[in-house]
């Protein structure tokens, strides 16, 4: 069987900015109070009178060339066998260098009393491996999120890829596994 490469696509044309994904993620992953692994960012674009606004789900992009993995002094931040980026708690010293190195600023530093780990989206791999869907995808009321195996040509995610999915910030050369379908007016 070919190696899996989990990925995610967010369709910004469908996203309504309801924050359901943020809340479902907190409930599923027991995220520390007041912090978010996934959040909603509002974009306001255009020049008056042609202005418009759209929302975007913002979370870890699971880069294939991740600045946080490069920066980690102990290799606690690492690539998993299915292409996502995760942190090994037994190696992490909590220096915060990965939090600063991430150009997307998606890592959150937990308080010392909660373990002091630089936490972030894990793509809910624990659910994906059981054949379930991540919490954000299950809760999305607009069906704007799709996760799946990017190496499987028949998966639904690869049909979405054909709709014009692009990388976030390709100028950073991080080659993420998480894509967006840009907002079209």
């Amino acid at each position: 069987m070919a190696k899996k490469r989990w990925g995610k696509i967010v369709d910004l044309n469908k996203c309504v900015g309801c924050h359901a994904c943020s809340v479902a993620c907190i409930a599923e992953n027991k995220v520390e109070e007041g912090k978010y692994r996934t959040k909603i960012i509002e974009h306001e674009e255009g020049v008056f009178p042609n202005v418009y606004k759209y929302t975007e789900k913002w979370s870890c992009n699971h880069c294939q060339h991740a600045p946080c993995v490069d920066a980690c002094p102990t290799k606690a931040s690492h690539y998993t066998e299915w292409g996502t980026v995760e942190v090994k708690p037994e190696l992490c010293i909590g220096c915060g260098y990965c939090v600063l190195a991430c150009p997307y600023r998606v890592r959150i530093m937990n308080e010392r009393k909660h373990g002091g780990l630089p936490e972030k989206c894990t793509l809910c791999v624990h659910l994906l491996e059981k054949g379930k869907k991540p919490a954000c995808e299950t809760s999305c009321i607009a069906g704007a999120i799709i996760t799946g195996d990017l190496n499987d040509p028949h998966s639904e995610i690869n049909q979405w890829m054909a709709k014009g999915a692009v990388e976030r910030r390709p100028d950073l050369m991080t080659h993420p596994n998480v894509f967006i379908i840009p907002y079209r007016r």
């Binding site: 980690c72 002094p73 102990t74 010293i93 220096c95 530093m109 308080e111 630089p118």
Partner: peptide, 26 residues
């Protein structure tokens, strides 16, 4: 003192990552 997991600090001296500036600094 600034580390969030100070009890693990010795690991930075055992595990090295050549791409990390901090690892060289340690």
């Amino acid at each position: 003192l600034d580390l969030h997991r100070p009890w693990n600090f010795y690991k930075v001296l055992i595990y090295y990552n050549p791409t990390s500036v901090m690892s060289w600094g340690a």
